[in-house]
Simulated assay, not measured.
Amino acid sequence: MNVKHHLGFDSEQAVLRTSIAVTTVVAGFGIAFGILSGSFSIAFDGIYSLADASMSVLALVVSRLIALSADSSQMSGKLRDRFTMGFWHLEPIVLSLNVTLLMGVSIYALVNAIGSLLAGGRVLEFDFAILYAVVTLITCATMAILETRAGKRLRSDFVKLDAKSWVMSGSITAALLIAFCFGYAVEGTRHAWIAPYIDPAVLAIVCVVIIPLPIATLKRSLSDILLVTPQSLKRHVDEVAAATVARHGFLSYRAYLARVGRFKQIELYFIVAADTPARNIGDWDRIRDEIGEAIGGEGNDRWLTIVFTGDIEWAS
């Protein structure tokens, strides 16, 4: 049996639905065991998972809207009329919100961990804590592996970010497991005084490590929101446009580019001499097809506009 197909990993929305279900279970498991063991680090792990699940729900909604916009026949008339350019712009907004929320939760936990260390730590039930860490680590590792593969196959930023969240959650849990095993080992020995400090200390270390991890995703999503032109895309489009100008004897061109999540918007204006011999519409469309094929990436996530004009003001 194909495990990924059985789990519903054959589409972006199916992956996110599975992840939400598993994350919710893990979150409830963590909060319950955090209370039973007296561990704020375990409770944080559960709350972190719960925050991640809430963002996954939002990502699932946006993913569904993007899928609907690719097939306008399935959209309601009101949505189609009000969002004529689709819902691609929501993707980087959700990614930014997701990263900001998770970083905020981690910063809050770091502050509490430092406060607990200064107050003398806390006593834990290490047997409950170890059981939680083992079960959760296995779950996180499994989901991280499956989602990483699915993210590459589906080319989905939502799935890739969700896979990173599972890696981060697994890293937190692995650190907790090591610390809890050490705490269990020193109980009843002359080093038992260390035990109350283990939970807040490991939580502080984990927070310091994971807070910077999503910064790259935040940087890219903010760039998309601000419509910063990707330089690799600009170089490629400039090469295609310059070759077109040389091949067809145009005067020059203007290119306007933006990336919003998976959506690429490309507008090309070619300046044609006023005395250029007349061509029929079929000839101009063949040139457009030629340019589109050279740029590549044709699909629902590419918005390509090609204009030919003798008036440079139309291109400015």
Rank of each mutant, 00 (worst) to 15 (best):
M1F: 03
H5R: 12
L7A: 11
D10N: 13
D10W: 07
V15F: 04
S19G: 12
V22H: 07
F29S: 08
I31Q: 01
F33E: 02
S37P: 03
S39D: 05
S39W: 01
A43P: 00
A43W: 06
D45V: 09
D45H: 08
L50G: 15
D52A: 15
D52I: 09
L58A: 15
A59K: 01
V61M: 09
V62N: 03
I66L: 09
S73N: 10
S76Y: 13
S76I: 05
D81R: 14
F83I: 02
T84Y: 04
M85I: 04
G86K: 04
I93N: 01
N98I: 00
V105L: 08
I107T: 12
Y108G: 03
A113H: 00
L117G: 06
L118H: 01
R122H: 10
E125A: 15
L131K: 02
Y132G: 07
I138N: 09
L146E: 05
L146N: 08
R153G: 13
W166R: 11
S171A: 06
A175E: 06
L176W: 03
A179N: 04
C181H: 03
Y184G: 00
V186N: 05
A192E: 15
P200A: 05
L203R: 01
A204C: 05
V206P: 04
I210N: 01
L218K: 03
L218Y: 11
L218S: 14
S221Y: 06
S223R: 12
T229Y: 01
K234Y: 11
R235W: 09
D238Q: 14
E239N: 05
A242M: 07
A255Q: 11
A258I: 08
A273C: 10
T276C: 11
G282N: 12
D283T: 14
R286L: 13
I287Y: 05
E290I: 04
E298K: 07
N300L: 09
D301R: 13
W303H: 09
V307R: 02
D311I: 07
I312C: 08
I312L: 12
W314G: 04
W314K: 08
W314N: 09
W314Y: 03
